[in-house]
Design a protein around this nucleic acid. Structure first.
Lengths: 120, 120
DNA sequence: CCATTACTTACCGCAAGGGATAAGTATTAG
DNA sequence: CTAATACTTATCCCTTGCGGTAAGTAATGG
């Protein structure tokens, strides 16, 4: 019971919600990939997409709110830059998942070992 | 231009959309973590949550549609099991992202090296 | 057999997401 | 100073997501 609640708490992380939601769109993933090559203006980022600027800006805001990018207004241009550190939260969560599988598969491995021992 | 379109195509992957969207909910993340310990019935999975069964079942369907779990009806019970292989798509995408940063930082490193050379 | 269990189906409601257009503001090039 | 640029703000529309209830079905315990 306590474990169940704790498990729920561990994953009840709004930060992960916004980050994963930001990843869940092809336009935003493409923007992130482009920003991996270096900073760019909103117009430059928007150029490859067949989309009006206002909705595109919403994607930029989504990425910024998720903490995946930072933006700065320079004159009339807004420069966007990747914030790689934010990916750590995702990697940590995935690592934690794997840690659980590992313990399970270890048990399975032990079981298989025991069966091998009996066969001898 | 061609690169821009290609970049867009590479990330235009509906599979990633559904997987990341599945991750973008604390209830589903908790279910995934619980399933990391081994298979479980829908009722067992639902027990820790203050939620009616029909909406909870929708989360299960979301995870199944994303390919993150498999389910099987045994009598009147539906058994859910984790499908760890699906995580590979996510890890590949993250790895691809890091690969891009790496090339960028390598360029930055080269630049810094050149500046150091000038100082000598 | 009959009641319980474990979903399942069929709705409803509200909020948020992804797109569009129209019109506004602040820089900056000429 | 004027015009063009680069957003920005304000709406709107439609779909999807996340929650709920009510009622149905199939399997099982007694």
């Amino acid at each position: 019971m306590a474990r169940g609640i704790l498990t729920h708490m561990d994953n009840n992380n709004p930060e992960l919600d916004t980050v994963f939601l930001a990843f869940a769109d092809s336009t935003r993933r493409a923007v992130l990939r482009r920003l991996g090559e270096g900073p760019a203006s909103v117009s430059d980022l928007a150029a490859p997409f067949d989309m009006a600027l206002p909705p595109f800006m919403k994607h930029i805001r989504t990425l910024e709110n998720a903490g995946l990018i930072t933006t700065e207004k320079v004159g009339r241009v807004r420069i966007c830059e990747l914030n790689p550190e934010k990916y750590a939260a995702v990697e940590d969560w995935l690592k934690d998942q794997r840690r659980h599988w590992a313990s399970r598969y270890r048990k399975l491995d032990q079981l298989l070992e025991q069966m091998k021992d009996k066969d001898r």
